[in-house]
Amino acid sequence: MSTLSHVNAQGEASMVDVTEKAVTQRQARAQGFITMKAETLALISDGQMPKGDVLAVARIAGIQAAKQCANLIPLCHPLMLSKVAVDFEIDHANRRIAITSLCKLAGQTGVEMEALTAVSVAALTLFDMCKAVDPGMQIDGIRVLEKQGGKTGHWQSEAADD
């Protein structure tokens, strides 16, 4: 088993030293879902949610969250993101919204945590803005879909639960 990268020789939490790592183009895509009543999904897709355009607000929240990742997760490096995108796909058949994020940079460490944070906060924002109409919504399936760059190169999820 490999050693844990966020623990030093004394067993204490430690930020990984990336000083000697090469700067490479890196990107990560993540996805998650929020499931709700069909009526709630119709209100969102028709732009009739009482709090306004919830998808626009959730998009901004997700982008902002990716930029704040190092402030939220203690051992994450603060990164100079060059691109953050958050997108939504309404799936009426399954009564859910798929949330995807893309984060990019040229740097010494990956952007998986930023992509996951973007999806998570976008989902939480949708929940917050719709909870008065549908408090039983469920957030799930948050995962990394793909990452590129660094010494491990290209990695893609094998799960096909899209």
Score class of each variant (00 low, 15 high):
87 D>T: 15
70 A>Y: 14
64 Q>F: 08
64 Q>K: 08
84 V>Q: 12
66 A>E: 01
88 F>Y: 12
62 G>F: 02
61 A>Q: 01
95 R>I: 03
85 A>Y: 05
76 C>M: 11
96 R>C: 15
84 V>L: 09
79 L>P: 02
79 L>A: 01
91 D>V: 09
61 A>M: 08
90 I>T: 11
77 H>A: 04
72 L>C: 08
94 N>V: 05
76 C>W: 02
65 A>G: 07
67 K>A: 10
90 I>H: 07
66 A>I: 02
93 A>E: 15
70 A>R: 13
75 L>C: 06
79 L>M: 10
76 C>I: 05
61 A>N: 07
81 L>T: 05
66 A>P: 11
64 Q>V: 06
73 I>E: 01
86 V>Y: 05
72 L>V: 06
97 I>E: 05
63 I>K: 05
85 A>I: 03
93 A>S: 15
75 L>W: 04
75 L>F: 06
75 L>V: 09
96 R>P: 12
64 Q>P: 00
73 I>F: 03
83 K>D: 11
89 E>G: 00
67 K>Y: 10
89 E>D: 07
92 H>E: 14
93 A>L: 15
88 F>C: 11
84 V>Y: 08
83 K>L: 14
66 A>K: 03
69 C>E: 02
74 P>E: 13
87 D>Y: 10
89 E>C: 07
62 G>K: 02
